[in-house]
Each structure stands twice: as C-alpha cells, then as structure tokens.
Amino acid sequence: MQGEIMDIGLDNLLGETARIKVEGYRFVTISCVEINEIRMELLYHFDRNFQLKHLRLSISRDCRAPSISPVYFAAFLVENEIQDLFGIRFHGLTVDYDRTLYLEKDVKTAPFCKFAVVEKSPVCEEKTP
C-alpha cells in the first residue's frame, strides 16, 4: 500500500489526528474492515501533496470510538456511514444521524457485517483522557 501506515490505539487517535492536521494533511476517508467476530479495523487515510498517510486502529465491535469530526469536519459523513453499515458507534460526532443516514429507524442490524450482530448499547468506552 502506498504511503506510511501507523498503528494507533483508541487513546491516541484524536491526538494523532490533530497532529496530522497541523502538519497540513487533507482528510481523505475512513475505511472499516471486519476482521473477525470481535475485532474491526478502522483505517484513516490522509493525503498531503499526493503522499498518503494511514492510521490503523483496531477496535472491538462493541466499543465506542471517538469521532474525529471535531478535528476534520468532513469526517462526520463517513463516520455516520460506518455507524450505519458496520454498527460501530462514534461519540462526539458533530452531526449525528443516529444510524439513519442510509438505514431506516427500526433497523437494528449492521448490513455490511458478515457476522450478524444485533445492535446493543456499547459496553466499553475508551478511557476518558
């Protein structure tokens, strides 16, 4: 894959994103990949002068991830999409559609997941900094 990849955790995600923004990167997108029944992977892609930079965050399915939309406003759309399609919830979203961006209100499943899970309220929150 083109560009440098960096592994990050839930606690330094926002810090890294803010640093990347200061370095003058443009937000490209977030890709969500389902790894297995428990783990999901979020890849944050950034670009500066056609040099890509990726942050790789491994997250448990029932964890809430912090939203990077306060840093990069444009991220709200893709985070809402991931909420809809993969069922990972984000907190601190600037515009939260609450899983109704693509889905109907009463849908509780995550249509893009291979392992069917019915939504329940997230059990673990990341430690408050």
Partner: peptide, 29 residues
C-alpha cells in the same frame, strides 16, 4: 479513492470506495 484488501482467494476481502461527491458534500454545509 479505492481501498482494496484481498486474501489470495478469488473474492476480495474488502472494497472501499470513496467517491468524489462523498468528499464534496461537507462543502454544502
């Protein structure tokens, strides 16, 4: 922007497409 992940089988593992309009919608807001 395409992000493609494959695992050596004939089916890809993940295909992620970030289309240009998706990036341009925040401009409307």
């Amino acid at each position: 922007f395409y992000y493609i992940r494959a695992n050596g089988t004939k089916h890809l593992e993940r295909l992620r497409v970030r289309t240009p309009t998706f990036a341009n919608v925040p401009a409307l807001l």
